[in-house]
């Protein structure tokens, strides 16, 4: 299971980042936490994108994961990082499984926008409901790890990095299974897939549920990293757009790509904002156009090219 190059890079790269993190300044550790948390959602979108499906509404699952953390914290006093994460991922996954019965019947723009519609409903409900924090959201207490409240952010960073590694390895494995390989075949010819004896609906349902679990986990980790949740930075349609943006920026080529893409995005946005607070979208947008024109395979295609040259 861990014999391929990608798995090795994930494993050793992840361990190296965890070790280096101990020496890095706080702001870098923070950027890595945000980047890796969000990358889980991108990993889920990658699974869908390979099959030709783009969701413009995965902030729904991202937000569900984040808000689950807030609600179990405030209502039940749950502080354990793993229970919070599991709760967020499972609630989102369950929602994805249920909604998947509808989504698996749609493709292309209908699939994309139906997801947007669902996320807007959740956004609307939260904004209008005082007990769900309305537009302000909630502050979240610091997570505990096996009952211990850590003094720095480093332990949470280690956990997020490890979750990221496990997720990348799991998706990498999934993509090599028979159902995981049903990507281009479904894009090319669904009828043939059915006549080979595989249900396209089941395959898409599974992919969709996987993407929901990952987006929920991403939201849960992001909420704990930030120490707060609010509808505009968790569930709004702009968040969904951002996720799609990073997915394309990263490229579908490899499970490592979402992590690199997310970090690039974090850095890009931070610097663009510092450089031009009024026009940072301009810089981000221009970068996006450059990627689409010159690197349609995303940042990963550049890395793959360099890798091939060196070997």
């Amino acid at each position: 299971m861990l014999r391929d190059t990608t798995s090795k890079v994930v494993l050793f790269g992840g361990i190296a980042i965890i070790l280096l993190g101990a020496m890095m300044p706080n702001w870098i550790v923070n950027q890595l936490m945000f980047g890796f948390s969000r990358a889980l959602a991108i990993l889920g979108l990658l699974v869908l994108w390979r099959t030709g499906l783009v969701s413009f509404g995965h902030a729904f699952y991202f937000g569900l994961g984040a808000y689950t953390v807030a609600i179990v914290d405030i209502q039940l006093g749950v502080t354990d990082v793993f229970i919070r994460l599991l709760g967020g991922a499972m609630i989102a996954g369950f929602a994805g499984f249920v909604i998947g019965f509808i989504m698996r019947n749609y493709r292309d723009i209908f699939f994309a926008m139906l997801n947007t519609a669902i996320s807007m409903v959740l956004y609307g409900i939260i904004v209008k409901t005082e007990s769900l924090g309305s537009t302000d959201g909630f502050a979240i207490s610091l997570p505990t790890i096996f009952g211990i409240a850590p003094e720095t952010k480093y332990p949470l960073f280690v956990i997020i990095t490890m979750i990221a590694m496990i997720s990348a390895l799991a998706v990498n494995f999934y993509l090599k299974t028979t159902v995981g390989r049903l990507t281009t075949p479904i894009r090319d010819n669904e009828i043939r897939v059915e006549y080979l004896g595989f249900s396209v609906a089941h395959a898409i349902h599974l992919k969709y549920t996987i993407s929901a679990v990952l987006a929920g986990g991403a939201g849960a980790l992001m909420a704990m990293s930030l120490g707060q949740v609010d509808p505009d930075s968790m569930i709004n349609w702009t968040v969904s757009g951002e996720l799609v943006f990073i997915t394309i920026l990263s490229g579908p080529g490899n499970v490592i790509a979402p992590f690199i893409g997310s970090l690039v995005f974090e850095v890009l946005r931070t610097y663009a904002f510092e450089l031009a607070p009024q026009a940072w979208q301009l810089i981000v947008g221009a970068t996006f156009l450059t990627i689409i024109f010159f690197l349609p395979g995303g940042i990963w295609s550049l890395i793959a090219k360099l890798g091939r040259k060196n070997s």
Binding site: M1, F173, Y174, K176, T177, T178, V179, G180, R181, V193, L196, G197, F198
Partner: peptide, 13 residues
Amino acid sequence: IAENRGVNALRIM
């Protein structure tokens, strides 16, 4: 696909 029906579809191809 012919060989890996059901949950076997989750085995490495």
